[in-house]
C-alpha cells in the first residue's frame, strides 16, 4: 500500500503547485490595459483570461494540497527508515551531465557555428554513454550533423548558424 513517504512526496508536489499558481496569479497584475481604449477590446480585457486561469489554478492546487495532506494523515507510517523522495529525484547523474552538455552547446553554437558544435555535442554524448564503439560514434557524429546542415540550408532554405569560421 501507499505509505506516508509516498504521500509526503505528493504533499511536496502540491506545495510547489500552490506556490506556482499564486506566483502566476500575482504576475497577472503586471499586465496592464492602461492606455488601451475600452472600445478597442469591447468585451474582454487582456488581463481577464490570465486572471481567470490564475484563480482556477490556485483553487485546484489548494485542493491538491488538501487531498495530499489528508491522505498523508490517513496513511500508515512506513516501516523502513528511508527518507521520502527528494523533489529533484527526477534528475539523475546521466541526465544532469547531458543537460550540462546541451547548455554548453547552446552557448557555443552562435560562436563556432552549427556544424562544429553539433559534431562536438554528438561525440561528447555518445562517448560519454558508450566508449566501446568509438569508430561508430565518430562516423555518426560527423555524417548526421553535416547531412542535417545540407538538407536545411540548401533544400529547405532554413539558415543554421554559421559561426565565425565560415563567414
Amino acid at each position: 500500500m501507499k505509505d506516508r513517504k509516498y504521500w509526503l512526496y505528493e504533499v511536496k508536489i502540491a506545495i510547489i503547485a500552490v506556490v506556482g499558481a499564486i506566483l502566476y496569479f500575482m504576475l497577472t497584475f503586471t499586465i496592464s490595459s492602461k492606455g488601451i481604449l475600452k472600445s478597442n477590446y469591447n468585451s474582454i480585457s487582456p488581463e481577464l483570461m490570465p486572471r481567470i486561469i490564475g484563480v482556477v489554478a490556485v483553487i485546484v492546487s489548494v485542493l491538491m494540497l488538501i487531498q495530499a495532506v489528508s491522505n498523508y494523515k490517513k496513511a500508515e507510517v512506513s516501516s523502513d527508515n528511508k527518507k521520502s523522495e527528494s523533489i529533484l529525484s527526477f534528475l539523475d547523474k546521466d541526465k544532469i551531465i547531458i543537460i550540462v552538455m546541451l547548455i554548453i552547446y547552446l552557448l557555443l553554437i552562435n560562436i563556432i557555428g552549427y556544424i562544429i558544435s553539433t559534431i562536438l555535442l554528438s561525440l561528447a554524448i555518445l562517448n560519454y554513454l558508450d566508449r566501446n564503439h568509438i569508430k561508430r560514434n565518430i562516423v555518426f557524429s560527423v555524417i548526421f550533423p553535416i547531412a542535417c546542415f545540407i538538407i536545411f540550408n540548401y533544400l529547405l532554405q532554413i539558415w543554421l548558424p554559421m559561426g565565425i569560421f565560415f563567414n
Partner: peptide
C-alpha cells in the same frame, strides 16, 4: 490577440 498588449 485582440489588443496587442504584452502579457507576461
Amino acid at each position: 490577440g485582440t489588443t496587442g498588449t504584452a502579457r507576461l
